[in-house]
């Protein structure tokens, strides 16, 4: 990672690779400033959410650009978790409609957790068959799986909604998770890529010992793939956590709402004209927190996983 090569020994090569950096150091300063600006644009809105969530609605208008919370209080969070009575909520600028983010949090957790666990596992199984086993038609079937990545989700969402409806699973957790349960084309692609590069030696030794394929898969392949599985699980979980369209179609009842849908409902219930901004921002923060925690713990893994372009 040495981008800034030290001054080269030969004067002939002075400034090679990056002729800009040495003679014009101010360019580097400008570059760093621009980068800092981009980081500020990316991160400051999160602070603004926090600041608003800790403010009270009545004081926001008079302090619209004050960096500190306006009239600090935790009422917004109480409202979000259904800890305020309707009259209290209305007095603080809320809608007074019952809203319970504990329920939505739990639903989001179930929805994302179940789909991630199942999809990653089943996709790994399929990826094993597409990489470590040899059978007729393997590449054709794999191409079929890959091709489904091109199908826009809305296109399959309509018929899938009808299927879930006909099965009587609308507004149920099973109906929510079912289409995501068996695989995602991306997960298969991702795991196959990894399995293709694994050494065959251990596997072959195990086979000579008479081990069956399922034992090889569970005892050799999967343990050795712990790192990519963790990455894949993280990415899948966050993707599911942020999913909006499908839960909007299938999970509309109070009991089956996930966080994203709950946020939308909370926003639409908010009094027109004078929205419950601090309540909305508190809800937003609550919805973002789990992903923020995951990012704080696994940030490096997530950041480093991005950049595979599939063409090479």
């Amino acid at each position: 990672m040495t981008t800034l090569t030290p001054p080269p020994a030969l004067p002939k090569n002075a400034g090679r690779r990056r002729p800009l950096s040495r003679p014009f150091n101010w360019r580097r300063a400008i570059a760093l400033t621009l980068l800092a600006l981009a980081i500020a644009v990316s991160i400051l809105p999160f602070y603004w959410v926090l600041r608003t969530a800790l403010s009270s609605n009545g004081s926001l208008a008079a302090n619209s650009a004050n960096l500190l919370p306006a009239d600090f209080n935790l009422g917004a969070f109480k409202r979000v978790f259904g800890l305020q009575s309707a009259s209290e909520a209305i007095a603080e600028g809320g809608s007074g409609a019952s809203i319970n983010f504990w329920q939505y949090l739990w639903n989001s957790l179930l929805f994302s957790g179940i789909t991630t666990a199942c999809a990653v596992f089943f996709s790994s199984m399929a990826a094993y068959a597409f990489s470590r086993l040899r059978w007729k038609g393997r590449d054709a079937v794999f191409s079929l799986f890959l091709a489904t990545m091109l199908v826009p989700p809305i296109f399959t969402a309509l018929p899938n909604f009808l299927l879930i409806k006909n099965l009587g699973l609308l507004n149920s957790m099973l109906g929510l998770v079912l289409p995501y349960l068996f695989m995602t084309p991306f997960a298969i692609f991702f795991m196959r890529q990894f399995f293709l590069n694994m050494s065959r030696e251990v596997e072959e030794a195990a086979m000579l010992d008479g081990a069956k394929h399922w034992r090889i898969f569970f005892q050799i392949i999967m343990p050795n793939a712990a790192a990519p599985i963790a990455t894949l699980a993280l990415l899948t979980f966050m993707g599911q956590w942020n999913e909006y369209f499908w839960p909007l179609l299938v999970g509309t009842s109070e009991e089956s709402r996930v966080l994203t849908v709950g946020l939308g409902v909370f926003k639409s219930q908010s009094p027109q004209g004078a929205p419950d901004w601090s309540g909305l921002m508190a809800a937003t923060l609550v919805s973002a927190t789990p992903v923020l925690i995951l990012f704080a713990i696994f940030g490096k893994r997530i950041v480093n996983s991005i950049g595979f372009n599939g063409t090479k």
Binding site: T184, F186, F190, M191, Q193, F194, L196, N197, M198, S199, R200, E201, V202, N224, A225, A226, A227, P228, T231, L235, T236, G239, N304, S305, I306, G307, F308, N309, G310, K312
Partner: peptide, 19 residues
């Protein structure tokens, strides 16, 4: 989900061609 990601290097080191 359209995440484009890079599978980490394999654990059982192997120098196999990608394609």
């Amino acid at each position: 989900m359209t995440m484009l990601t890079k599978p980490p290097e394999p654990g059982l080191s192997a120098r196999a061609p990608r394609k």
